[in-house]
């Protein structure tokens, strides 16, 4: 199993690590039993992600996918943010080993979970539920 240089770059110096106090949306996916937890914090103004931070417990790929996913959504309107796919995350990292593809799914889901949390806090329940409904293709998510 070999990681791309891009994965190792993001693993060695991950971008946007940390927490946001009073974040507008927080999403956590994965579980400790499987060895991956991603937590994403969003600051959102007028449906634009103005800041993003993450914390991840997991392998090199989990940390790298979290890091690059935060780069990909920072400064973007939610309409763009929700277009983020695990495939785009993998491509941005110049590929992932097959056994690590689930990490990119987790990154996409962490972003969506954080946005869903934001929607819920703003009474946009229907939009939140629509987002979370897609979260069933990950073998580890949701316990």
């Amino acid at each position: 199993m070999v990681y791309s240089e891009k994965v190792m770059e993001h693993f060695a110096s991950p971008h946007n690590v940390g927490e946001i106090e009073n974040a507008d949306g927080v999403g956590e996916v994965g579980n400790a039993k499987c060895g991956d937890i991603m937590k994403m914090y969003l600051k959102i103004d007028n449906d634009i992600v103005t800041d993003v931070k993450f914390k991840t417990f997991g392998c090199g790929a989990a940390i790298a996918t979290s890091s690059i996913a935060t780069d990909m959504i920072k400064g973007k309107p939610l309409s763009d943010v929700l277009q983020l796919t695990n495939k785009a995350v993998v491509e941005a990292l110049d590929g992932l080993p097959a056994v690590k593809l689930h990490c990119s799914v987790l990154a996409e889901q962490a972003v969506k979970a954080a946005v869903a949390d934001y929607y819920k806090k703003h009474g946009r329940e229907a939009e939140a539920e629509a987002l979370l409904a897609g979260c069933d293709d990950c073998e580890c998510c949701g316990q």
Partner: peptide, 16 residues
Amino acid sequence: LPGIIEKLRSMSPLWE
């Protein structure tokens, strides 16, 4: 080793 453990824990939601 101790520094690496601290670094990984500081970014771990499980540790939190």
